[in-house]
């Protein structure tokens, strides 16, 4: 029912989101065993599992409905330049302040996106989004809770969060890079588009930061870090992919 140009744009949208979810899930899983408290260790691991699961769901639609390779091939066999992840998700976990702020930025955006996609005219995506948004609600709840607690915690925790927010705001804006065919998706009720998602996101981030006693950077003065969607990546993606595919590449034809 959709023409080729439209389906190509759907393909891009899904690939961007699948790659972002895979990479942030991978990063969040690196907290396993290393969290600042056991409960956070468990929370980050749980969120990471959901992200990897959401990536799998998105790759599965690409495979089943859009003729792309199977999910394991897409995730474990592509070259770095074929990935479309945003730079925000590629950075190493760093300290907990960075990981927490990234978690807030990412999950507020993911929640808005999947809320929108839940009513998408492209049925397979709408079906997946209805399931996913219910899970992301808890991720947002977790991020908000910790941002507020640490925002009102000690001088140090407040300063650390504010600094992570300021330093990574441009990276966060890079999640909303526009892409070819976006207007086709907007016109046909498949997706409301990056600019609209970004506007909603700015409002939600502002609300959370206000409650946490933290300052919102002026988005009009921050340059978005773009390029990820077009295959230009940070120096951190290739080593991540090398690690992720280390075992798989021993024998890609083998069953593991």
């Amino acid at each position: 029912m959709f023409n080729k140009e439209t389906l190509d744009a759907v393909r891009l949208l899904l690939l961007f989101q699948a790659d972002d979810h895979l990479i942030i899930g991978h990063r969040n899983s690196e907290w396993t065993g290393l969290g600042p408290i056991l409960e956070e260790d468990i929370a980050f691991s749980s969120i990471a599992q959901d992200k990897i699961g959401h990536a799998l769901g998105l790759y599965s639609i690409l495979n089943e409905n859009l003729g792309e390779a199977d999910p394991d091939t897409l995730a474990f066999m592509r070259n770095e330049t074929d990935f479309t992840s945003s730079h925000l998700v590629e950075l190493p976990i760093g300290e907990y302040d960075f990981s927490l702020v990234r978690h807030l930025f990412f999950d507020l955006a993911a929640h808005i996106r999947f809320e929108d996609l839940a009513t998408s005219a492209f049925d397979p995506v709408a079906k997946l989004a209805r399931k996913v948004k219910g899970e992301i609600k808890y991720h947002v709840f977790h991020a908000n809770t910790f941002i507020k607690q640490l925002g009102h915690g000690s001088e140090e925790s407040k300063a650390r969060l504010q600094s992570a927010i300021n330093q990574n705001f441009g990276l966060a804006l890079g999640m909303f890079e526009s892409f070819e065919g976006e207007q086709l998706l907007i016109d046909q009720g498949i997706y409301k588009g990056e600019a609209a998602i970004r506007e909603a996101w700015l409002g939600e981030v502002q609300a959370v930061l206000l409650e946490a006693g933290l300052k919102m950077p002026d988005a009009s003065k921050v340059e978005p870090v773009l390029g990820g969607r077009k295959g230009f990546h940070t120096e951190y993606l290739q080593p991540l992919l090398d690690e992720m595919t280390e075992v798989f590449r021993v024998d890609p034809a083998a069953e593991w």
Binding site: H26, S29, T32, Q49, I52, E243, M244, V250
Partner: peptide
């Protein structure tokens, strides 16, 4: 976890260690 081969193994190992 970061090196598990394929989605199935990765998800299972993450859940296990958690």
């Amino acid at each position: 976890i970061t090196r598990a081969p394929g989605f199935r193994r990765k998800l299972a190992l993450m859940a296990k260690v958690q």
